[in-house]
Amino acid sequence: MSASISSPEITFHPEHEDTTKPIWRTFWILSFLTIIELSIGLIIYNIHKGENPNATLVLAFKGMVCILTLAKAYYIVAVFMHLGSEVRNLIMTIIVPLCLFIWFIAAFLWDGNSWKNLRNRYNRINEKTPTEQVAPAAKEKGAKD
């Protein structure tokens, strides 16, 4: 390697591959994954166009796209950002804090879903006009406050 050590903190100079093969391989993998994602997107589009779209099927396809996206993210971070070839310590200090996202996402989406349910419930109650239906709704609102 002709490059000199760039900083006194560095113990040894990391080996860099001389070929650009892994880069191009990753490019093709990413393109391939994107094409699969697109075709799933079009499948979802066609399911939606038909009569009575199957919600479970759509959800399953959407889940697949999410997994494919994570795979793409893995390749970008591991190969393009070179994290895969770094010292293990660095990999861990990047990956471990990212685990915070699990609870971050779960709690937020859960609460969002709960707002929908609450809204729908109160809208249903409000739509029924008879007076005896209004009283408990008002009471419930009071309890919530």
Binding site: S7, E9, I10, T11, P14, E86, V87, N89, L90, T93
Partner: peptide, 13 residues
């Protein structure tokens, strides 16, 4: 790696 005097990540700051 962690004993000081060098980067534990073998990376510049």
């Amino acid at each position: 790696w962690w004993s000081g005097g060098k980067s534990p990540f073998n990376a510049s700051y």
